[in-house]
Amino acid sequence: MSFLTLDHVSHYYFSKNNYTKALDDISFSIQKGEFIALLGPSGCGKSTILSIIAGIIKQTEGKVSLQKKEVETTASEIGYMLQQDYLFPWKTIVDNVLLGPKITHTHSKNTEQKALKLLKEVGLAEVANAYPSSLSGGMRQRAALVRTLINDPKILLLDEPFSALDYQTKLKLEELVSKLLKAYHKTTILVTHDIGEAIAMSDRIFVMDANPGTISKVFEVPIELRNEPPLLVRRHPKYQILFDKVWEELDQRENVQTKKVVSINNEGD
């Protein structure tokens, strides 16, 4: 049984004097506990897919269902983590983490303890009562991760959560996220433009194509890589093989795109 299903989803962005087709006929389904990476160039509609699944924007056409129920509005069933941490600077770390329970009116002594436990798990117990401005980028992103996890979402949407970090912090955080998500059996969709990250973390990689956004190819990550932590995956011989394949696919797509642009420009002349 599939957990999350996108059925012929298309999305348009309208403006006063133009419209763009951001997504064209996207269909896929994900099993419970699976880790999916959406990989592609910027502007291919990766983030749009996440926003649609999260219910922040409504798709123009098609259907999204989570456990056979159609996704209508946002609910606590979905955890969404953005590119930057977007911790509220006027709230302490623990108050930031408790935003979810407060909004869904499930806040209690229990959730507070859970927040502290999760913060401890990601190594932020000492700064629970500090303000975000006194934390480093990596720490802030970890706090944001806890904020996303506290409501126990059925599915996690990660929108390039590591892209604003320096390389070392990024690798460490990948390691932590991967460990946590495995421990809690979370279903996850990760949006990224980093091939290595996609291979290191996910079970399947959907390569996307831009203008309009479509899924051009799906790569299965070899079973040997799936259960390894990201740092070890990067050293595995099969990692490089898959990396090259994905690279080739992306490269080909880019060439096609360039030709498209060139032909459009020529038409204009």
Binding site: A54, I56, T73, T74, A75, S76, I78, G79, Y80, L82, Q84, Y86, F88, L99, G100, I103, T104, R147, N151
Partner: peptide, 14 residues
């Protein structure tokens, strides 16, 4: 106000 703060809250169903 940065719309992403709003986005965070909307994702919780605010």
């Amino acid at each position: 106000v940065d719309p992403n703060f709003e986005k965070v809250l909307i994702s919780f169903g605010a």
